[in-house]
């Protein structure tokens, strides 16, 4: 038996990246702008999408819904008469805690790309894995709710660094939780000085107009995720 060392020097996630680039090329060909929307579980991704899409007149939006199990979120969004495709990571992929490029690739044939201009990929709720796996998106956004605590940018720097927009949701809870918006923004500044922020309460509607405009308005057509601010 002879032992040979073979040089590899490949990124562990290169295979995922290659598929992500193929997805992105498909989206570009169809002129569909893609947002990868990420957060911890329960931060309000679906609720904020509902609030934005309930007044989405004239906007052609589709949603790719990623969950470990079930279609609860997809069912909610379907009520708003937008095309929704559900990916469950449970049966086929062993319950992965994130979407990867291949899962999104497998859903592309089900997406009506000719009928939409914007695709929102609602990732599986998780602040860790989705930060690592690109799926072919143009923009990476995240939601952080005040109930999660002001230290989260410091604890999950990769996620907060990889997003150009951070929506701070559930601000209606500020009187009831130990969360200083100022300290949160200072922590965010430490890991991502260029991040844009919007403060929202999906419950009271505060900040929702700004969020909707960011998602659907002229600015939503913005620059691709790869470009520097």
């Amino acid at each position: 038996m002879h032992r040979t060392t073979v040089k590899v020097a490949d990124g562990a996630l290169d295979a995922n990246q290659t598929i992500a680039e193929a997805n992105r090329a498909d989206f570009d060909r169809a002129s569909v702008s893609v947002v990868n929307l990420m957060s911890a579980p329960g931060a309000g991704k679906t609720r904020l999408l509902e609030r934005a899409l309930e007044r989405a007149e004239g906007n052609r939006v589709g949603v790719l819904e990623g969950d470990v199990r079930g279609s609860l979120d997809a069912d909610r969004l379907s009520l708003l008469h937008v095309p929704v495709v559900q990916i469950n990571t449970d049966p086929a992929f062993g319950g992965e805690c994130h979407l990867d490029a291949n899962m999104v690739r497998s859903a592309i044939p089900d997406l009506p790309l000719d009928e939409i201009d914007l695709l929102v990929i609602e990732n599986v709720g998780n602040l860790v894995c989705p930060a690592e796996f690109r799926v072919g998106e143009h923009r990476r956004w995240m939601i952080s709710s005040v109930a999660e605590g002001e230290d989260k940018p410091l604890k999950y720097p990769l996620m907060f660094r990889s997003c150009e927009l951070v929506v701070v949701n559930k601000i209606d809870l500020l009187p009831h939780v130990d969360f200083s918006v100022e300290r949160f923004l200072a922590n965010l500044e430490r890991v991502n000085p260029e991040a844009e922020t919007i403060l929202t309460s999906a419950r009271t509607g505060e900040g929702i107009d700004a969020w909707r405009e960011r998602l659907l308005g002229p600015a939503a057509a913005g620059r691709p995720a790869g470009a520097s601010a």
Binding site: M1, H2, R3, T4, T5, V6, K7, V8, A9, D10, G11, A12, L13, E132
Partner: peptide, 11 residues
């Protein structure tokens, strides 16, 4: 996040 090299057992 790189796989730098591997050692294989070559019979």
């Amino acid at each position: 996040l790189l796989v730098e090299s591997i050692d294989v057992e070559d019979p």
